[in-house]
C-alpha cells in the first residue's frame, strides 16, 4: 500500500448525497479478477448516455476538463450500498487519493483506508465552504496533523482517524502485515476456545 502524508491538490466537487457504490462502479464492471483498470468506469452511468462512451453527459463533473485533482469532495453518506471494494479501486485508479464528505458509509470507509485512499469526514458547514470554492482552489490534507485546509482562505478543520489506521497510512502498512505478526495470539485464541 502507498504511504500517505501530505497532499495539496485542486478538487472534484460532487455535491450529491447518498452516492452509492453502484454509481461509483456499476456491477457489470465487477467481472475482473485483478484490481487494475477500474478507473475508466468510475461513475460510468453518470459520465455517458446509454453506456455509450462517445456520448458524454456534459453536465457531469468528470466530463468537465476544468475540474480535476486528486481530491473528490462529495455530499453526505458517500459510498453507501454494496461492499464492493472495486469502488475504492476505481477511485484510486482514477488518480484520486482523498475523498471528503460530511458522512461516509462504514464499509466504503474501511475499503478506502485499506487501499490508501483517505476518507475525510468534515462538518457539513466546512463541506459547503469547499463547495463554494472555484475550480482553481487548492486544498491541503495533512495526515500527521489531521487537518484539511482551504489554501485560498486558510480556513482549516481537524479530522478524526484512529491512531492505528493513521500509523498504517503514514507508513503504507496494511492490516495483513499486522495480523500475520500476531499469528501466535490467534492460534492461542483458537486453542482456548476450542
Amino acid at each position: 500500500m502507498q504511504a500517505f502524508t501530505v497532499l495539496t491538490s485542486t478538487f472534484i466537487p460532487l455535491p450529491i448525497e447518498n452516492v452509492d457504490t453502484d454509481q461509483i462502479i456499476p456491477a457489470r464492471f465487477l467481472k475482473a479478477t485483478t484490481k487494475d483498470g477500474f478507473g475508466k468506469n468510475l461513475f460510468r452511468d453518470w459520465r455517458y448516455e446509454n453506456d455509450d462512451e462517445s456520448k458524454h453527459r456534459a453536465g457531469f463533473v468528470l466530463n468537465q476538463p476544468e475540474y480535476k485533482g486528486a481530491i473528490l469532495v462529495a455530499g453526505k453518506n458517500f459510498g453507501c450500498g454494496s461492499s464492493r471494494e472495486h469502488a475504492a479501486w476505481s477511485i484510486l485508479d482514477a488518480g484520486i487519493n482523498v475523498v471528503v464528505s460530511s458522512f461516509f458509509a462504514d464499509i466504503f470507509k474501511n475499503n478506502a483506508l485499506n487501499n490508501g485512499v483517505l476518507p475525510i469526514t468534515v462538518s457539513d458547514e466546512f463541506l459547503q465552504k469547499i463547495f463554494r470554492e472555484n475550480n482553481n482552489s487548492l486544498l491541503t490534507v495533512n495526515l500527521q496533523e489531521q487537518t484539511i485546509i482551504i489554501n485560498r482562505t486558510g480556513e482549516s478543520e481537524h479530522f478524526d482517524i484512529n491512531d492505528y489506521k493513521k500509523t498504517c497510512l503514514l507508513n503504507g502498512y496494511d492490516d495483513i502485515d499486522y495480523l500475520l505478526s500476531i499469528k501466535d495470539d490467534i492460534i492461542n485464541f483458537e486453542n482456548q476456545t476450542a
Binding site: S83, N110, K183
Partner: peptide, 14 residues
C-alpha cells in the same frame, strides 16, 4: 459484509 482486503485478511488469519 466486508471488502476484498478484509476477505484477504480472513484468508490469511481467520
Amino acid at each position: 459484509g466486508i471488502g476484498t482486503s478484509e476477505v484477504e485478511m480472513a484468508f490469511a488469519s481467520q
